[in-house]
Computed example of a mutant assay.
Amino acid sequence: MTGRVVVIVGASSGIGLAAAMAFAARDDDLVLVSRGAEALKAAEVVCRAAGSSEVDVLVEDIGDPAAAARVVAWTLGRHGRVDVVVHTATVMGYGAVEAVPAEVFTAVVDTAVHGTVHLAQAFLPVMRRQRAGAFIGVNSLLGSVTVPQMGAYTAAKWGQRAVLRTLQQETRDEPGVHVCVVSPGSVNTPIYHQAANYTGRLARPPWPALSPDRVGEAIARLADRPRRHLSIPVGPANPLVIAGFRLLPLVYDRLVGPLFRFAGLTRDPAEPTTGNVHQPIPALERAHGRRPNPAAGR
């Protein structure tokens, strides 16, 4: 399937950029949305090189309630339709619930939960009128389990998952409109290095970390053949972790804290930082993660 109009929110970095390249390889027309103009221009160049002849970029913050309406109006004015919407935009905050500043906690939740709501309210009516379309929300393994020191992110992903599941139920009356959920585990993207952090230690993606290219390709395949499953997992460890959380809660709670400190945090000290929660960090926006600059985003 080629020639679709695909809107990707959060397209300048990580999974969003990887998904954009996967759709570009299918010669789809892309509308790339993100907060960072500089990184979006770089994403445009990469996607054209990957095969897409039509790539447009829009600088918008999906946390703004009016942003989604501007994106849908621009897309319809330019292309006349929208076939796929992918919401990958997310920000992360590390730290105990008691330690994360309220405005940081709220912003992390808003990006995932209200960002999904804003996009759904703007794009699903269009898909209903078309009687066709795929709305894909990128959730997380942490939308099904909880992890200490990641309360803001887990709250965001549990809330987002609830919204997406409700949307799946509410669109059952329109067979051509699909609301899909992709739930990857640990992915080697810059989000860990850009996150707000109040743990005192630098963060890293826990092992085994997937390549963002694998998740991006999974998203594109799902758009090729949309499915109304509860959620499409990406990552070998997801079923085991979820089973432990649900079936062996006492064992899970005993192990999850030490395992997170071992696998999710380095030994390197880190000063408190808001990371990219309130504004992007252009130097760290790319598809794949790397060792962070400890001074970035303080």
Rank of each mutant, 00 (worst) to 15 (best):
12 S>K: 14
13 S>P: 09
15 I>F: 06
23 F>M: 12
26 R>V: 09
30 L>R: 05
32 L>Y: 14
36 G>D: 15
38 E>F: 03
40 L>F: 14
42 A>H: 13
42 A>P: 09
51 G>I: 08
55 V>G: 07
58 L>D: 14
69 A>T: 12
75 T>D: 04
76 L>I: 13
77 G>S: 11
78 R>K: 15
80 G>N: 09
81 R>T: 12
83 D>E: 10
85 V>C: 12
96 A>C: 00
96 A>H: 07
103 E>Q: 14
114 H>D: 14
120 A>R: 04
127 M>A: 04
129 R>F: 00
130 Q>G: 05
132 A>Q: 07
132 A>H: 10
133 G>H: 10
135 F>K: 07
135 F>D: 05
136 I>K: 04
140 S>L: 03
141 L>H: 09
150 M>K: 03
168 Q>F: 03
175 P>W: 10
176 G>I: 06
178 H>Q: 03
182 V>A: 10
188 N>H: 10
193 H>C: 01
193 H>V: 01
195 A>D: 01
195 A>Y: 05
199 T>W: 00
200 G>V: 03
212 P>G: 03
216 G>I: 06
222 L>W: 13
232 I>V: 14
234 V>Y: 04
236 P>K: 13
238 N>A: 07
240 L>R: 07
242 I>D: 06
253 D>I: 03
256 V>S: 02
258 P>I: 09
259 L>T: 13
261 R>V: 02
273 T>Y: 02
274 T>R: 15
280 P>T: 11
284 L>E: 11
287 A>G: 01
288 H>P: 01
298 R>G: 07
